[in-house]
Amino acid sequence: MSGVSGSILYLDGVSVSFDGFRALNNLSLVLAPGEMRAVIGPNGAGKTTMMDVITGKTRPDSGAVIFRTDTDLTRLDEPAIAALGIGRKFQKPTVFEPLGVHENLLLALAGNRAPRHALFARESAAERMRVEELLDIIRLVEHRHRRAGDLSHGQKQWLEIGMLLAQEPDLLLVDEPVAGMTDAETAETARLLRDINRSKSVVVVEHDMDFVRALDVKVTVLHEGSVLAEGSIDHVSNDPRVVEVYLGR
């Protein structure tokens, strides 16, 4: 087990149980700064629960979750963790449907989150520019005035990734970003994530093995709440235990 030092995210011995069901069982995982990690595993392996623990939605029964070597995440709630610089994309694309694309990004921009500020806030030139940049990155420039609810499924996924970027986090947690996407969109998303990874650490949970292969990063396989195997995609896909529980023959 490598130590806390030099990691951006460090999980050690994390366990969570619901009504006797152990969703996470002594899970340990270390992510280096600037790393992109793919997490795979069968349903119920604990992928989403792991994200819940990191983002403060679920408190672990035991174990340590350390961000940037010095911050204990288990003591913080979601907004505090988000403010620290951890962004999360849900499995089901979650954007503010009645609001416009532009407004979605504007609300996600890093800045003062207090109601008092929001009541009198006006869109500044800097904010407008940053939103334009993001629109360009997620390829929604020509959709900026549309209602977010009217976007296609893939566009919503991108918008959500854009909102994550707007937060300017150091670490992105991305849950099944290509579920329900066309092949072209999937390839485009892989490219987008690799771009993002140039400046930020990323954890991607995904089922789509072609997509994981396209990312070409270190893979962690979860099974029954703990790590089954870790290594390159070729390494894990040849591991007989991984084949047995997940990939199938």
Binding site: E78, T94, F96, E97, P98, L99, L106, L107
Partner: peptide, 24 residues
């Protein structure tokens, strides 16, 4: 109509999303 109003709607329709964006 203020930015706060938009956040309210965001809270109404996707409360946990706003939380993960850092809003309380």
């Amino acid at each position: 109509l203020s930015r706060l109003g938009k956040i309210l709607i965001a809270v109404r329709d996707a409360e946990s999303r706003t939380r993960f964006l850092g809003y309380r």
